[in-house]
Write a protein that binds this DNA or RNA. Structure first.
Lengths: 344, 344
DNA sequence: GTGTCGTATGTTATCGCTAACATGTTTTTG
DNA sequence: CAAAAACATGTTAGCGATAACATACGACAC
């Protein structure tokens, strides 16, 4: 009975509550809370005190509607679980933390129809920009992105036509580079191991670049193996075993990602196979994990955090200045020889 | 000149545009787009056609403000990069996909002040519920959560006082269980290896439970080692080497997570150490990665995707019915003996 | 002392949508 | 065939904030 004024209704607080509690207009409260315009030090303190005491949290929904500004950046990626996108996210956050913008993540699981749905949901919140993985999207998705009238950055891939801006590496080129390095090291009987996902366009492009560069030297893939689901490390072991059994004269294994490559490496070491003397190995991505392996797997860095940073920077600058468009940044994947690819 | 009607201004579309294009009121368009109330089949089609043709995407900001409903669930987690939270996320998505609710992720990097900021940001969008990792929060964060008047589920930990609902395991108990299993296997010279993060309360509680259960049998930690930053796998190797050099009579290594445990395991195998004969090993988490290791590391499953599912279910049910509160679900971590802990 | 300026505050009109109610139109029913 | 019920649509009034434009007030110049 004594504290009936302290915890009245469970109605959410509004600017009006703070304004009444501090004896100024709603507008002045709004100004204080946003650090905008001229407010005297005295009222500023009065208002902040009241807001804190009441535990007021502004309603961004109303704010966004009134100001026609939403400080969110939609980030649409296929997966969180493969180590690559978390790192991109880190790069994005790093840059956006310096701005009023905030990333909001949507995950598509490599499914175009999910991408479409996630995109629709996110655009319906009218974000300030979109960062989306890949260049392949459904027509509907592309139409939405074009119609949104906000900066769009497609990341991780530059082999194709971008809607607006693009930041990434050429996976075809990455595949070619790796093929050249492998050929140069003297290998000719080369096997490929990858995922079964036909919708992972970047893996596909790497494979295409790879086979193309081999073909140029008259070499063909000696064997190939694909997996889906399960622990990538374990799958790498299994596939490697299967391939080495089926095609014993193989002298190089190219994996479409580092995780299965690591599994393959562990298998070979277990079996006492001389790496890279008898069989050479290479993966793709440059994940941190590889540092702890008994032998360092050859790989190629996809510049993930750099991609994230560059994409975020484009959105941030464009949001601030309103100028720009169509930026295109192609980063160079760096090959890391490691211990599983012969030098020269 | 000919297509001036097709691409007029770059002004974002509103309900009014669709309403004019289809010759009905805005309200009717709204009803069609939300599948609400009675609309004749004829007008429904007319409206959908117009909306599609124009490429209209509803403005959820306005919708949310008007309806006082926001179908977002704030998910606040410390990190994306350690394999554990992506799996929780998967569980959450699985359940929310069946509902109109949508998860929105915020990352705190284990920093209370960041948690506070992220929470404030998210609450300012007035979500339907909050799923937040851990039971330890700043006073301000707790106050915000209480004042929000929405379902709050604290996940991953049940050792402490929850604000509202809680789903997780007892890390103290997990630590105790592992200690008991290790003692039972006959080990007495036990080393602990973990992260330096004082703010990872769950790791801390596991350690406390662990030492407590050892103490009960008169055993003390023989040596300990902590790391921060870098590749967990590599750090696991380094720390293991350091500890085995410094305290050669150690016969068991307990790692605070599977990744450093895996590093330790690889190191021991490299060195030709008999595992678990000479030295036993155990980690924590039950990450998928372990399946591919040469020997399966003993670990304890934290029921991550189950936690995500249960938490999401609580939010979903409470949002729908408006009833409930204070749910508490303590899951039982299961010990996985693997190949690095002697049986019996 | 009056006019002008600058600072601090208040007022009014949206923002794009939806709840709630009002209105028209058709169908049903006794 | 009138009245009630069922359906289909429209109208009005906010939701909680902010932009843009007042207005009040003291300081200062001349």
């Amino acid at each position: 009975m004594t504290d009936q004024k302290i915890a009245p209704t469970r109605r959410p607080l509004t600017l009006r509550d703070v304004s009444e509690a501090s004896g100024v207009s709603e507008m002045t409260v709004s100004r204080v809370l946003r650090n905008r315009g001229d407010v005297s030090e005295a009222t500023r303190e009065k208002v902040l005190e009241a807001a804190k005491r009441l535990g007021y949290v502004p309603n961004k929904i109303a704010g966004a509607l009134a100001s026609q500004r939403v400080n969110l950046v939609a980030v649409i990626i296929p997966s969180l679980s493969n180590m690559v996108f978390p790192e991109v996210m880190t790069g994005i956050s790093e840059v956006l933390d310096e701005t009023p913008l905030q990333p909001v993540v949507g995950v598509t699981n490599y499914k175009p129809e999910r991408e479409e749905k996630v995109l629709y949901e996110m655009l319906s919140w009218r974000p300030s920009g979109v960062i989306i993985a890949g260049l392949e999207h459904s027509d509907a998705s592309k139409a939405m992105l074009k119609a949104a009238g906000i900066p769009v950055v497609e990341i991780m891939d530059t082999d194709g036509q971008a809607i607006d801006a693009a930041v990434g590496i050429s996976h075809r080129r990455a595949g070619r580079m790796m093929a050249q390095a492998i050929l140069k090291a003297g290998h000719r009987r080369i096997g490929f191991l990858g995922t079964k996902m036909p919708l992972d366009h970047r893996a596909r492009k790497r494979f295409e670049g790879f086979t193309e560069a081999l073909a140029k030297e008259g070499v063909e893939i000696a064997d190939q193996e694909f997996y889906e689901g399960g622990s990538a490390l374990a799958k790498g072991r299994e596939m490697t075993e299967a391939m080495l059994t089926r095609t014993p004269d193989i002298d190089f294994l190219y994996y479409s990602n580092d995780m299965i490559g690591a599994g393959g490496l562990l298998y070979c070491l277990d079996q006492g196979i001389d790496v890279p003397g008898q069989v050479g190995l290479a993966g793709f991505n440059g994940v941190e994990l590889l540092d702890g392996l008994p032998r360092k797997l050859a790989t190629m860095d996809a510049c993930r955090s750099e991609v994230g940073r560059a994409a975020a920077k484009i959105i941030a600058e464009r949001t601030e200045s309103g100028e720009g468009g169509g930026e295109r940044i192609e980063l160079s994947p760096k090959i890391e020889i490691g211990d599983t690819l012969k030098r020269r």
